[in-house]
């Protein structure tokens, strides 16, 4: 069990790297705009476990890649807040990512049921 657990953790971290980026794009595409903590909580509520140490570097990289855009807002004193929105690049990327994801999931289901003696 120990070995499988270790391998699983390793696989999961690789798998989630790309998956999380897709989730962030989905979220921003849906909600319009959001900020770090809210994004983290919505992902966690949706069942995608994510920590600060994963999310903020990802947001930083995606901002650099220009799939999302960040801007500071000062809706009230004391809490200037950095909001993220999806960019046009991000929208185009999301369409392609969804296709890939669906295709991959379908392929996996196909293989899985194939294994049961189709």
């Amino acid at each position: 069990m120990g070995a499988a657990e270790g391998l699983y953790e390793k696989w999961k971290s690789q798998f989630r790297k790309g998956f999380l980026e897709l989730c962030v794009l989905e979220l921003l595409s849906n909600s319009g705009r959001s900020y770090g903590l809210a994004i983290m909580e919505r992902l966690n509520n949706a069942g995608v476990d994510v920590t600060e140490g994963t999310l903020y570097p990802l947001l930083m990289r995606m901002t650099k890649d220009e799939s999302i855009e960040a801007q500071w807002e000062t809706p009230e004193v004391g809490h200037p807040r950095k909001y993220y929105v999806i960019s046009n690049i991000g929208r185009a990327l999301l369409v392609r990512m969804r296709e890939e994801y669906e295709k991959s999931a379908a392929a996996q289901r196909n293989l899985m049921s194939g294994g049961q003696g189709l």
């Binding site: 140490g53 994963t54 903020y56 570097p57 990802l58 930083m60």
Partner: peptide
Amino acid sequence: ELEPPESLADSLRDAAG
């Protein structure tokens, strides 16, 4: 309860290139 600042910084460094 947060991720240690060292590892958060490491990941951010990585993301920033």
